[in-house]
Design a protein around this nucleic acid. Structure first.
Lengths: 117, 117
DNA sequence: TTCGCTATGTATAAGTA
DNA sequence: TTACTTATACATAGCGA
């Protein structure tokens, strides 16, 4: 999406990598904001810069969304459709391939979030 | 980015909204994957569909990134499209570097992840 | 770091199946 | 839900400050 097409490999130059990170992080958060607005959905993004600095975006906030995700087994879906249980058989292979391709997980988490204090 | 420009407000038609969600979620995860690859960074995205179904992307995984984020204490940057400047300047950076080196946090965590099962 | 520029590469709205 | 097409709108690489 620029003057030239770039390879999908790590940008070797530290400075260029940081610039690329900043630009693309901005673009990603903007897209996330659009998705939340257009579709009225909850979303959270957490990303650490090459320097280890944390950035996040959340609608309505990071922690509510993370909490809902991690605890979704116990969740009460008022007025909303419950997430369908995924079939183990048909379509499994294709879903698996899609997971590997996009890094998406359709499987339940193994962790739970607790607030301290 | 299509035949027509669309307004940045909720898509009223349920069916169209779901289609828009699916397309844009795919695009967002692809962008996230590119960011992770190009910049070699950790990233996690959690999003609930209009129907309440959870989708996630994580490099190297959702839980590790979420855990790292939640245990950073007061250094959250929630819900902002643009990163805020860190409250502390060079001294803070030095301390952060020391934190990263030692693998410890000087800030108390607000949440904790517990492994299930 | 961030800002502006702009030629190009990409994502996607609408339509159709 | 997803798949394909195509015209457009948009994101961004590379560069200079």
């Amino acid at each position: 999406m620029g003057r030239r097409k770039i390879e999908m490999k790590m940008v070797t130059d530290r400075s260029c990598r940081q610039v690329t990170f900043s630009k693309r992080r901005t673009g990603l958060f903007k897209k996330a904001n659009e998705l939340a607005t257009l579709c009225a959905v909850q979303i959270a993004i957490i990303v650490f810069s090459p320097g280890g600095k944390p950035f996040s975006f959340g609608n309505p906030g990071v922690e509510p969304v993370v909490g809902r995700f991690l605890n979704r087994g116990d969740e009460h879906h008022d007025g909303q459709q419950r997430p369908q249980r995924l079939p183990r058989d048909s379509g499994g292979r294709r879903r698996r391939n899609q997971e590997l391709k996009l890094g998406v997980s359709f499987f339940p988490p193994k962790y739970k979030l607790f607030q301290l204090g």
